[in-house]
Amino acid sequence: MTLSRYLILLPLILLAACSSVEPWQKGHLAKPKMAFDPDPLSARLKQHIYASKEAASGGEGVAAGGCGCN
């Protein structure tokens, strides 16, 4: 694709992201299969194992490492 096509396509994609969700559509988004993490207990266990293997706590989801430096 050429640069002009990308410049036309990008605003269209950004405008599509601004669409609103109607109240009757929210039921579809509330289904368990739409969750980021469908099994929170399993995710918590994986997080615990990861923290144990890294020998540091608080390292998941933040920019700092286990050494205390940023």
Rank of each mutant, 00 (worst) to 15 (best):
M1E: 04
M1L: 11
T2M: 04
T2H: 13
L3P: 00
L3Q: 12
R5D: 10
R5H: 11
R5T: 07
L7V: 03
L7Y: 15
I8L: 07
I8Y: 01
L9A: 02
L10Q: 06
P11Q: 03
P11I: 09
L12Q: 13
L12I: 14
L12F: 13
I13M: 10
L15I: 12
L15D: 03
A16L: 03
A16T: 02
A16F: 01
A17R: 03
A17S: 04
A17E: 06
C18M: 07
S19V: 05
S19D: 09
S19F: 01
S20T: 03
S20V: 07
S20K: 14
V21N: 14
V21F: 10
V21W: 04
E22N: 13
E22Y: 11
P23R: 04
P23F: 06
P23I: 12
K26W: 05
K26M: 14
G27C: 02
G27E: 06
G27M: 03
H28P: 00
H28L: 07
H28D: 10
L29Y: 15
K31F: 13
P32G: 06
P32K: 13
K33F: 08
K33R: 11
M34V: 11
M34F: 14
A35C: 01
A35Y: 15
A35R: 14
A35G: 13
F36K: 02
D37T: 12
D37Q: 06
D37I: 01
P38S: 14
P38D: 05
D39G: 08
D39L: 11
D39Y: 04
S42R: 07
R44A: 14
R44L: 06
R44Q: 09
L45F: 11
Q47H: 08
H48T: 14
H48A: 12
A51N: 10
A51H: 00
S52Q: 08
S52Y: 12
K53I: 02
E54D: 13
E54C: 06
A55K: 13
A56F: 11
A56K: 00
S57P: 00
S57V: 07
G59R: 00
G59A: 08
G59V: 15
E60G: 05
E60I: 04
G61E: 01
V62W: 15
A64V: 13
G66V: 07
G66Q: 01
C69T: 08
C69Y: 02
C69K: 10
C69V: 10
N70S: 03
N70Y: 15
N70Q: 15
